[in-house]
Amino acid sequence: MTLVTTPNLTDADGFYAALLAAHKGRTEAESHALNAQLVLILANHIGDEAVLREALELAKA
């Protein structure tokens, strides 16, 4: 499998809104904590190390 970089969410706007809602009312430190947990949760869900490496590269680029 390779990293999906084309649209893959049926309701991208909905997810974006949900993400922001999750952060609403949090301090910056709390937001960082939430994001860190999200990264770990999603990485575990993906499980494919090659895909994760590609994702890391894309984010770093």
């Binding site: 904590a33 947990q37 770990l40």
Partner: peptide
């Protein structure tokens, strides 16, 4: 940050325990 969040997650999700 990540260290602390792994510990926090470990209480909620089994996958984080191994980390």
């Amino acid at each position: 940050l990540f260290r602390d969040q792994v510990l926090a997650l470990a209480a909620k999700a089994p996958f984080a325990r191994g980390m």
